[in-house]
Design a protein around this nucleic acid. Sequence first.
DNA 1: CACCATGTTCCTTG
DNA 2: CCAAGGAACATGGT
Length: 286
Amino acid sequence: MPELPEVEVLVRHLEPLLLERTVLSVDVQHRKVVRPSTTRQLRRTLVGATFHKITRRGKFLVFHLISPQAAQPVQLLGHLGMTGRMYLLPSANPLPRHTTVSLDLGSCRFVFEDTRRFGRFTLDLAPLKALGPEPLSDDFTLRAFTAALQHSRQPVKIKLLDQSIVAGIGNIYASEALFLARIHPALPANVLVPRQVQALRTAIRRVLNTAIRLGGSLPLDWAGTGPNDKLFYYGRANTTTRRKERFRVYDRANRPCHRCRTAIRQLLLGSRSTYFCPHCQRQIAC
DNA sequence: CACCATGTTCCTTG
DNA sequence: CCAAGGAACATGGT
């Protein structure tokens, strides 16, 4: 479920629910996701601590807690991987099959469910250091973005997935942003002209902002309990909301481009599916 | 059974 | 040393 917009919407959803709540106990069902922290460390640090803020960095959630026994606020890092979910569940409910970690909050539990267990729930903050600028902040400057693209002949789409260049873009929004900017995804990063870099930067911000707005306005089924519910990436909430097509190009191979009706094409870049309109996103800079 | 999937990291190759 | 490519991780859906 997770690229920057989905994580941002999740953070906004969770914050009011978790604020002022105190962790009574910690259960780790799959220690892989807490690595390199240990269950014992998590317990020692979190039990008795109270949530006081939740923030986001790239695709990471950062839970800030106040612990009576620690001078400094405690920080807990979450990452959803490919299949992670986080939500509150009434204590009476059984833990779902793929629960990896759960925090007892009294009347309910904070559950981290992750089928494939590619996610993280850890006290180790090191992964944050490798992240590039936040795309929606002023740190994501045209100058820095240009510099990051200038020294690589790799396809520009692959560069967008590089979290050290800009944090939070994933496989879906990479294709979406390139479509908006009308740039061919396979174009070597270092051949983009300044106008294209600028267009791409603008497109990235636009795509992410739009997705956040959409996600923030939909009544989402956080626990994903509905049947046939893929959840997240919006439009699939358990509501009758008429869903507009979620994406302009992603997962739309052979379907007509919204702008010119040309069939959308799919290709592999870095062994990941990439979608684009061969007419709107031509190879050559113009 | 084969292949694909929202992500990241590690290893190998050049 | 670095860039680039691919496998690995683990499970489920089609």
